[in-house]
Simulated scan of single mutants.
Amino acid sequence: MASTQGLQAYEEEKLLLSLPKERGWAAHHLYLFQDFWCPSNFIEGVNNFQKHFQSKDSDVIVSSFPKSGTTWLKALTFSIVNRKRFSSFDNHPLLTSNSHDLVPYLDFIFHCDNIQNKLSYLSNMTEPRIFGTHIPFPSLSKSIQESNCKIVYICRNPFDTFVSFWIFANKIYPDSLDKLTMEEALEKYCKGIIGFGPTWEHMLGYWKESIATPNKVLFLKYEELKEDINFYVKRVAEFLDCPFTEEEESNGVIESISNLCSFEKMKNLEVNKSGTFDRSFEKKYLFRKGEIGDWVNYFSPAMIEKLSKTMEEKLSGSGLSFKTYS
């Protein structure tokens, strides 16, 4: 076992030395791995996930770029899929468990040496299994891409995503950002140098796949969910082949799910106010404002011009666009 672990560590070190490296914000360094920027401690999990994960047709994958509404979409998806199992909204798992605990990240699951234990854990999960990931579409395991599993993707206006990521990173890794100004961080962001970035390629990968295979990938925007959450709760249920019955609709089940998963409700739950996530940062940092357009309080005119031009360049001709809400 020791020799196997030693060989694996050697191979990982050899891989890191071969990859382009840049200074990160929430990580000291990011490595260009499979065409996206990845912190070194995630690469092992991504590699193992790609090699060992076997998707089932009933699986649901909640995918997102970081700080785009991940915690919210995980809660919504879990509640929609499991509404028959947990019909009481007064005694629901989301009241006592963070949505990241209920919908685990695939690369986190495989970030370990004991793969067999993880495979046993996965095989014993209640179906349909629901997982989360920040991994770009091209780097998902072949079994996910080739199976009939469903992918629900959420993105957010890049202006708000940047601000949310910047503030989050400052909170959880204050020492690593002391020499990086917000303007410098935006420069990196526009160049795509951010964990799981470039942002543009991440969004466009899922966007194009949602157009090519609309029955497999559902593409959502954070802002649209905020504007009409009940509509999108119903839309997600239809996409996942578990539509609400007329009786459920008349009994207010859609509204109950929307309320259970609302930002205000989740932020004020004790389970989300105390404790840490994966022993790495405090859960309370997952919830800040949840607002649309808060970026106007942070951007200078020069920063607005820079990101606007970058978005125009990167998203031009794709059909994907965002309101500025300024």
Rank of each mutant, 00 (worst) to 15 (best):
K284L: 09
C190E: 10
G290W: 08
G195L: 04
F86Q: 12
L204A: 02
D101R: 06
A302D: 09
I109C: 14
T181I: 11
N268M: 08
R129L: 03
K67E: 03
F86G: 12
D228R: 14
S97E: 08
L119Y: 08
Y206H: 08
P198K: 00
P198Y: 00
T213N: 15
E291T: 14
I172E: 02
N41D: 14
A212C: 07
S143H: 10
L315K: 02
K150T: 02
S258N: 08
G197M: 07
Q145A: 11
N272Q: 05
Q34P: 00
N148E: 12
P20E: 11
S258M: 10
N148F: 02
P138E: 02
K14W: 05
H28W: 10
V152C: 13
F36C: 15
T71D: 07
N148L: 04
N114W: 01
L204G: 05
K179Q: 13
V233Y: 10
N215L: 02
F244M: 05
S79Q: 06
P128F: 01
K208F: 06
I130P: 09
P138A: 06
V296N: 02
C242W: 10
E187K: 09
S64Q: 08
W72N: 07
I151S: 10
L186W: 05
H92N: 14
F49A: 12
K309L: 15
I229Q: 11
I211P: 14
W295I: 09
E249D: 07
W207H: 09
Y325K: 04
N170W: 02
I257A: 13
G317V: 03
E255R: 13
T276C: 11
D59R: 14
S64V: 05
Q145P: 01
I154E: 14
K74H: 12
D228L: 05
V81P: 15
N215D: 15
H29P: 00
L106P: 02
F49L: 14
M125K: 14
V271T: 12
W295V: 11
S120D: 15
L7P: 00
F159N: 07
P93A: 03
P198S: 05
P39R: 06
K21S: 08
E127P: 06
E187V: 08
L307A: 11
P39V: 03
I257T: 09
K273R: 15
E291D: 07
M1D: 11
Q54Y: 05
Q5L: 13
W37T: 03
Y298G: 00
W207I: 07
T71G: 04
N114C: 07
E184F: 08
N41W: 11
L204N: 03
K221D: 01
K74R: 15
K14Q: 13
S55E: 09
E146M: 11
Y285I: 05
N268F: 07
K56R: 15
H92F: 06
L94K: 06
H100G: 00
I151A: 04
S3G: 00
V46S: 00
K56V: 00
M1Q: 07
F78A: 10
M303D: 01
I135W: 01
E264Q: 13
T324H: 09
F168T: 03
Q5D: 06
S40C: 05
N157Q: 05
T96V: 14
S256I: 05
A169C: 13
I109S: 06
P39Y: 02
R235W: 01
V163W: 01
D35W: 01
I211Y: 09
A237H: 10
